[in-house]
Structure formats: structure tokens, C-alpha cells
Design a protein around this nucleic acid. Structure first.
Length: 456
RNA sequence: GUGGUUGUAGCUCAGCUGGUUAGAGCAUUGGUUUGUGGUACCAAGGGUCGCGGGUUCGAAUCCCGUCUUCCACCCCA
């Protein structure tokens, strides 16, 4: 035997059962998206490099899969550049396309490109694979699916409120109870940075703050010092490290910290609005939690920031994220179109449902009837019946070969087919069908009409 | 990108400090059983020990490289 074929690391094959389970998640999410008024679009799996590059920060650029130009791609690189062996400089010469890294940036590109055809506010959802040249680990792949819902063309905070409800609706429909929807606001982070005199170090400051629950207060302070944030500034942060209690009481504490920051106050107002509405409307199974350490997608989020964590019993990174971006389309030349959206990580949700055993038993569809093949005459007779069954929406098939009974029966068992039909000489003569229940072993002789009636 | 970990039959794994022809269970195929399956028993097929190089009289076993797996960091869904 030659060496076995394989697939690139971080990618996966899906067997029929896995596909059925994935489709169950897809369908559940899609159903809720549509209930909330979102419409589906699709974009190409690869975009022009300039559409993607620079939109996700340096780290993001590194993780984008670049597609090599076709043809004699090296001939365009001048010798001087080539001899320097500067990968970054050469990349733009030999690669002009790249695999999509997420669904948000391509959507922004779509909105700008089709701005005159779109009726705003535009609510779209998109469920497609994205690719990242990351190193795989638990719940992290190089090809995975995102399910995004975004609204563009409205600055209304009611959108944020609806997205919180949508998260709750989807996870409730998936029977995944006890997820936490964490919410924060970019304006609060900016406000804090402003108050401690580190406005220019917002990203460094938030990246460090984000690690609070992971590495602890001391290490976070160390990292901030390293990044050049003043000692006095860090001292002002002290209340932040011990921030606790209900949504409301955290808000009160934040108000004290941010009293001098106009932007910070704006962020507080927004959070209060959302919390008040959600409290009034109620959530089914999820919990909305204020988390000031939450810092995601800072390269484009300007208002609300969302992240969803699985129930604490499961060790898994976030299973969803999102936020408000006031100026994403600005990058592509369209000003003043605000957007807000959320994303579901299908592959991670799959792992969580699997771990908690939450998939319904019936996710995979099976055929009801397998006709045993006894030979040419019998097979043709069976196919006539099968045709009628299928016209009546009954799943049925004929075993393709006139193999030994044992083999055919075994095949039915392996595939968990509940019934087989036997048609031999005797049945041919009487134009009847022997139906055998593979679980109980019972069998009955039926006419085609009776057979159809039984399975309809 | 950094650090660690893993790789033996289709699958799950044994194989002690290097020593004849590398094993088991499950799965597969055939038989006991020509139109009645699941169970049982019997038998058979299937492996360049991830790949490449090195040390050695001798390597699945030790060393180096490489790829892969999983995990942590970075970052993220």
C-alpha cells in the first residue's frame, strides 16, 4: 500500500453523522435569523488582498492565507527585491488574492460595492467558511464556519437589544442553557484610557485588561507598566480590578471612575439603555453580563462589544462574538454607515453540544425501507414498488446486488434501517411484499397499497 | 510565530533497559447456515512501525531533522 493520503492540518472531513449534526445547528441558527428578519447573502471564498489586509491588525495579517498568483509569478519580482528575502515586501508582488478571514469585512466590502441597490437599514446573515493560518488547538481550526448576522444603516441601540435577544433565542433553541452574553463598550474602554492618561495606548491597555481573569491583577499591572502606562494611571484603575456585583452596581462604580470622561459617559448611557431594555423584555435561558475587561475586535468596534461564553462546565473559548462598528465601510470609502452584528462559531458550538450530549437523537435521516435483492426479475418488480413509495415521500432503496441474504440483512443492520422488504418467487406470484421489522423480527405479507399506507 | 506533546493493521492500542518471522481487541472477508439478519464458534487477509537521515553487528525501540496530532502562549470563533 502506498502512503495514505491526508488533509492539511487544522482541516477536517465530516462523516454523514457529523454533517447531520452540523446541519442541525445551521438550520436552528438560520431559522432564528429569519425570524428576526435577516436575509441571506454569500460572498466569494477569496477576496482581493487589499480588501482584507490591514483590517485585522498585524496579527490578523499574519493569519490570512495568501493565494499565490497564477503563471510565472516570480518573473514580476525584480532581482533587487528578491535578493533581500523580505517576505512581507515580496508577498504583495506574488500574491494578489487571499482567503476570507471573517465575514464582516467582506460584508462591508459588499455594502460599499452595492450601496445603491441596498435598502437601508439592511439586515443580512451569512453562513460560510472562513480560513486562518493559525496553529490548531482545542476548538481552533484553520478552516471553520461563522454564522453572522449584521445590520447596517442604523445607529439605533434597539439593534443591540435585538442581538442580545437573538443570541438568547438561538442558544435556547439549541437547548444550550446557561450561556453568558458578555457585553462591554469601546467608549468605556476609551474613557478609562483617557482618564488614566493613556489614550494613545488604548490597544495595549485593553489587551492587558482582557487578561485579568486569566493571569490575575498583578500580572496585568506588570504588563501595563511594561507597555508604558504610568504608575499613577494604573492606581486610578484600582476600582476596576475589584468591579463586581450586578449590572447596575457595576455601572454605578464605572460612573465614579469615568465622571470626567465625556466618551466614557456616553458608553455608560448605551450600556444602561441596553440593560434596561433587556431587563424589561427578559431572556429565556441566557444571562447578560457586563464585563469591562472584554476587549475584542478593537480594530473596528466603536460601541458595544459582545462575546458569548459556553456554560462554565465546558472548557471552551468564546462561541460567539460581535459588536458595533461605526466606520467599517469608511475603509472602503463609504462614510456614515453604522453597522452592528454578531457571529456564531459553528464548530465550537458543535463541540460544546457534543460534550454536553445535547444533540437530538433524530438529527440524521435514514431510509425506512431496504428491499432485498433476489435477482433481476425480483429487482425490477421491487423498483416498481420503490418508485411508488418515493412518489409518496417514503424513503426506500433496493440493495444493488443479488448478494447473499446474510450480507444484505447485515447491511440493513449496520445502517440501522428499521424495515426490509423481501420479494421472492412466492411474492412475485401473489404480487405481494413481505415486510420485516428488523427490531422485532416480525414479518407480514402486504400489498403495495398497504405498504404505502403503513409508512405514510 | 514560541514552547511542549503525539504518530505501530481500517479503528483503539500493547510491544520491558535496542536482539529471530512486530502482537491483541474491534472491524473486514470466507465458513458452520443455498429465502431470513443481530449471537456464537472456526479460519483467512491486512503493517515500507509517519517520513528522511544518523549511531550500532543489529533500531518500532537511541539521536537529529521534517511532517502530523493534541495542549499552552500570542491571537481568536
Amino acid at each position: 500500500m502506498a502512503q495514505k493520503p491526508g488533509i492539511p492540518k487544522g482541516t477536517r472531513d465530516f462523516n454523514p453523522e457529523q454533517v447531520a449534526k452540523r446541519n442541525y445547528i445551521f438550520n436552528t441558527i438560520q431559522h432564528q435569523f429569519e425570524l428576526y428578519g435577516f436575509q441571506s447573502i454569500e460572498t466569494p471564498s477569496f477576496e482581493n488582498s487589499e480588501t482584507l489586509m490591514g483590517k485585522y491588525g498585524d496579527e490578523g495579517d499574519r493569519l490570512i492565507f495568501k493565494i499565490l498568483n497564477s503563471g510565472d509569478y516570480l518573473s514580476k519580482v525584480d532581482n533587487n527585491l528578491y535578493s533581500k528575502k523580505d517576505s512581507n515586501a515580496i508577498t504583495s508582488k506574488i500574491s494578489e488574492k487571499a482567503l476570507r478571514y471573517d465575514l464582516t469585512v467582506p460584508f462591508a466590502r459588499y455594502v460599499v460595492q452595492h450601496q445603491n441597490e441596498i435598502e437601508f437599514p439592511f439586515k443580512r446573515y451569512q453562513m460560510q467558511p472562513v480560513w486562518r493560518a493559525d496553529r490548531p488547538q482545542k476548538g481552533r481550526f484553520r478552516e471553520f464556519y461563522q454564522c453572522d448576522a449584521d445590520v447596517v444603516g442604523s445607529t439605533s441601540l434597539w439593534q443591540e437589544v435585538e442581538f442580545v435577544q437573538l443570541y438568547d433565542a438561538v442558544f435556547t433553541a439549541l437547548k444550550l442553557e446557561g450561556v453568558t452574553i458578555k457585553i462591554n463598550n469601546r467608549k468605556i474602554l476609551s474613557g478609562i484610557a483617557e482618564v488614566i492618561g493613556a489614550s494613545d495606548k488604548l490597544i495595549d491597555f485593553t489587551v492587558a485588561l482582557d487578561k485579568l481573569d486569566k493571569i490575575g491583577e498583578e500580572k496585568v499591572k506588570e504588563e501595563m507598566l511594561e507597555k508604558g502606562i504610568s504608575k499613577e494611571g494604573i492606581e486610578k484603575l484600582q476600582p476596576l480590578f475589584t468591579l463586581s456585583g450586578s449590572f447596575n452596581s457595576q455601572i454605578e462604580q464605572l460612573k465614579a471612575i469615568l465622571s470626567t470622561s465625556e466618551e466614557g459617559n456616553k458608553g455608560i448611557e448605551e450600556l444602561e439603555f441596553i440593560d434596561k431594555a433587556i431587563t424589561e423584555l427578559g431572556l429565556q435561558t441566557a444571562t447578560l453580563q457586563l464585563d469591562v475587561t472584554l476587549a475584542r475586535g478593537l480594530n473596528y468596534y466603536t460601541g458595544a462589544i459582545f462575546e458569548v461564553s459556553a456554560p462554565e462546565t465546558v472548557k471552551m473559548g468564546s462561541i460567539g462574538g460581535g459588536g458595533r462598528y461605526d466606520d467599517l465601510t469608511g475603509i472602503f470609502g463609504l462614510k456614515d454607515v453604522s453597522g452592528v452584528g454578531i457571529s456564531f462559531g459553528l464548530d465550537r458550538i458543535y463541540l460544546v453540544l457534543e460534550e454536553l450530549n445535547l444533540f437530538p437523537e433524530t438529527v440524521s435521516k435514514n431510509i425506512d425501507l431496504l428491499f432485498i435483492n433476489f435477482g433481476e426479475t425480483e429487482a425490477l418488480f421491487c423498483l416498481k414498488a420503490i418508485k411508488q413509495l418515493r412518489l409518496n415521500s417514503i424513503n426506500a432503496e433496493l440493495y444493488p446486488d443479488a448478494a447473499k441474504m446474510k450480507k444484505q440483512m447485515n447491511h440493513a443492520n449496520k445502517r440501522n434501517i428499521p424495515f426490509v422488504v423481501l420479494v421472492g418467487d412466492e411474492e412475485l406470484e401473489s404480487e405481494s411484499y413481505t415486510l420485516k421489522n428488523m427490531t422485532t423480527g416480525e414479518q407480514f405479507k402486504l400489498s403495495l397499497k398497504e405498504l404505502i399506507l403503513k409508512f405514510q
